[in-house]
Design a protein around this nucleic acid. Sequence first.
RNA 1: GGCGGCAUAGCCAAGUGGUAAGGCAGAGGACUGCAAAUCCUUUAUCCCCCGGUUCGAAUCCGGGUGCCGCCUCCA
Length: 503
Amino acid sequence: MSLSVFNTLGNRKEPFVPIVPGKVRMYVCGVTVYDLCHIGHARANVSFDIIVRYLRYAGYEVRYVRNFTDIDDKILRRANQEGIPFDAVTKKYIEAFHADFDRLGLLRPEAEPKATEHIREIVTLTERLVRAGKAYAVNGDVYYSVKSFPEYGKLSGKHVEDLLSGARVDVDERKEDPLDFALWKASRPGEPSWDSPWGPGRPGWHIECSAMSMKHLGETFDIHGGGKDLVFPHHENEIAQSEAATGRPFARYWLHNGFVNINNEKMSKSLGNFFTLRDVLGRVKPEALRFFFASSHYRSPIDYSEQSLAEAKAGLDRLYRVKEKAESCRAAGAIPAPLPEGEGYSPLAEAPGRFAEAMDDDFNTAAALGHLFDAVRAMNRIAPSDPASERERAGQFLAGYDLLDPLFAVLGLLRTGATEYFRGGLDSAHAGGVPFTGSLASELELVPAGRLPEGEILRRIEARKAARARKDYAEADRIRKELETAAVLLEDGKAGTTWKYRE
RNA sequence: GGCGGCAUAGCCAAGUGGUAAGGCAGAGGACUGCAAAUCCUUUAUCCCCCGGUUCGAAUCCGGGUGCCGCCUCCA
């Protein structure tokens, strides 16, 4: 089985064959940095994060590039509102982007190019198009001539005639044709500007991605990704510019993620129905959000709700319980042992193969997760209730977990210690992308406000243990209930009593 | 108006010709002093509706209904 991907260019699933065997060059359109990211941005970024992780897992050497659009009208407007320079706005929101997405555990791309740092490349590319007669300058602006590119519309499936009759294209006297779009915009007084052969100005939106992707990945590369809303006009225009300039195919595979909806409607800034990532990460663990995204296919729309998040969290808890047991096996000194034979255990033994088969089918994370849950059931069947005394089972369990962990890693799940997961707060889960270990977290006293500190919990567990020993179950239950009120769950097992915070 | 997508149990969600994964929630059983977790069993005679193709369709074709997206900044 080999990887197939759904290519927007051609609107069908096709085998993935990289230009250079074993290597993948991939460009993903990032965000315009004028505000905090919302859940829709999170979905897009997590989707491509998982795609990169899987490609690497599958053995490809991936060069991943994701840009920041750091000059545009919205940024200038924001700068005016706040009375600060435009690059103070972009600096602030790039930092916010990194802070938020580090918490989500996103891989950093090999390059994160910014438009303002590629003015030279943008101007060069624009000149190239002008020289080729594919673009024209008018009063300091430069426009791309859409009708000079016969294949215009091949990505989005649109026809030039239909676009014109749609009448929603803006009428601009300076353009030769209403469909033409700006490669370079003359700057107005007071606006930031860069020198160019056409006078001071700044780049249009679409040209930056062509210039930056070519610089960092070459004129033809493997994968270009982004949200579905970028298909037209952004990506269509990128193709037109790039291919008209180079005479060569631009990106081979165009991957687009579906939207996050609220009540079945697209979440977006312009509709005002969005939740910022920061806000959501203040309420749920980052991995619960990842789980939520991974539980449906990246191209499908996904409806965001408190209930969905709660279900994701419940599912993630089930996975973390397996990791928790694996940790206790390891702590008990278990040595990985061959997995048990038998049909009941085949979902575990075959998990890597089934996982890969699902992921090879256009990164079907929902199916892949399904197989992981099958494996988890098999794991729970061999789980020792007391790792210290059940050496054989503890070893098998550990081996099983070691088999599954790399698969969870592809989805970016189970990246924290289980103890930290169950006992840590939302804020201590990650700091700068580095997860704290349980002991470090408690050393730093990262106990969420209003929670009982660990020492106090352990004292009460001891008191309850004594009560149970003298069969004073009324007192034991009183302590359990008391802790329950403080959101602490006690779990009695053969190896003793453990505890976790319940949200 | 043009183009595209979706419709699977109470909820979420896989499944593109061979007789309905998985998760959450629910029910019964096991285990447990209690609880939690876990395991076992169970929960869609059927995949929006109507036709058609086929030995056989949730899956293909035609028609219909509903919802969504793009065509303007947008992940």
